[in-house]
Amino acid sequence: MKPTLLILAAGMASRYGSMKQVDGFGPNGETIIDYSIHDAIKAGFGKISFIIREEFLDSFKSIFEPKLKGKVETDYVFQNFDLKPFGIDEEIERAKPWGTAHAVLSARNQVHEPFCVINADDYYGYDAFEKMAKFLTTEVADDKYSLVGYQIDKTLSDYGSVSRGVCKVNDQGNMVEINERTEVYFKDGDVFYKDANGETQLPTDTRVSMNFWGFTPAVFEQSLPMFQKFVQENKDNPKAEFFIPLVADELIKSGIAEFKVIPTSSKWFGVTYKEDKPIVQDSIAKLVESGTYPTKLWD
């Protein structure tokens, strides 16, 4: 059974100032998602599932269906505010849904095979998809998941601090814990993060999560009670988000599942700030020039 690629594309793109998921970066207006899908198909994924807000359905279909017809199966998962499908019988006022792990849970009735999760607005590189496809077809189990670990210095923006899930990895290559650092940045060529305790330097080869995770459908059952508990504890906190690293951390600490950190040498790039756009366009232009991608991606 071929694995599925689940793309987190329901975000509001608040920092970017427009719907960056469908902005054009390639020589013919290709989106960042186009390159991820192209790499996923090449690596052997059999289905692409977009997690979106329902009102974006027509927009996504008009952009992606003509390109992908006959190449790969597509599916659409809606993330919204309705908590009843998750066994929570109350309405909670919020400006946006409950975060990335809630988005993944929204796919539980539509994904029945091993799958990986990525962000819509990040470029991951073919190496990462190839390694993840191999893991999902040969190693994954209900108690053995994975994430792709990027080198922290290959993931930062020159235009401001970013959030990164910093991984602690043991000698077996498994994640021991993941800590969300909300302010990570370059300073004089070195990498630092800032928190309540001040500024801390990180080694440049520290592995970080860029939200590229591999699971079996068992994760839906495993994370549902966590989500129910999270909602109860955070119903008065409209900004609280149920993130995938929270689920991973709990699964590791409770001994339910281990997470293999798959190292990649790929340089990650993405669009956090408007100023990142020309850098992403230039990075893609170089990949096209080197022959990594054709000029017209879908011809």
Rank of each mutant, 00 (worst) to 15 (best):
R181A: 15
E139W: 02
F50C: 10
N197P: 03
K134M: 10
R164M: 08
D122K: 11
D190K: 15
P66K: 02
H102P: 14
D249S: 13
N197I: 12
F269H: 08
D23E: 15
R108K: 13
F135P: 11
E275M: 08
T272N: 12
F186L: 12
V148N: 02
W268T: 10
H38Q: 08
D299S: 09
G29R: 03
K131C: 00
F269M: 08
G99S: 04
W298T: 01
G149Y: 06
R53M: 00
L6S: 09
G165Q: 02
N179S: 12
N234A: 01
L68E: 03
I262S: 08
D23S: 10
E93F: 12
L136H: 14
V140C: 11
N174V: 03
V288Y: 00
Q79T: 10
K194I: 05
R53H: 01
D195C: 09
F215N: 12
P27H: 04
Y124S: 03
L57E: 04
Y150K: 14
S59M: 15
F64K: 05
G11H: 04
H38R: 05
S223D: 10
V140Y: 11
A257M: 04
N170K: 03
V148A: 05
I41K: 10
D127G: 12
V22G: 11
D23F: 09
K154P: 09
L251R: 02
K47M: 07
G270I: 09
G160H: 03
P263K: 00
D143N: 10
I51F: 15
S18H: 11
A196I: 06
L251A: 00
G149F: 00
Y123C: 08
P85G: 02
S146A: 15
K96D: 15
K194C: 10
W98M: 05
N109C: 01
N119C: 09
W98E: 07
P66M: 05
F56W: 11
V77H: 06
N174Y: 14
W268Q: 09
I279M: 14
F212A: 05
G198D: 11
R207E: 15
V22Y: 06
K194A: 12
A141T: 03
L57N: 03
I37D: 11
D249Q: 12
S62H: 04
Y123E: 01
W298Y: 07
S283E: 14
N197W: 07
R181F: 07
L105A: 07
K134Y: 15
P294K: 00
L156A: 08
E258F: 09
Q151C: 15
Q232I: 02
K84E: 14
F25L: 05
V208M: 04
A196Q: 12
A248L: 02
D195Q: 07
P97C: 05
P217D: 02
G291E: 05
D122Q: 08
V148I: 10
L251C: 06
G125P: 00
F60P: 06
I178E: 13
P203G: 04
I92N: 13
D282A: 10
Y293Q: 02
P3K: 08
F220A: 08
D39A: 06
E113H: 06
E139Q: 13
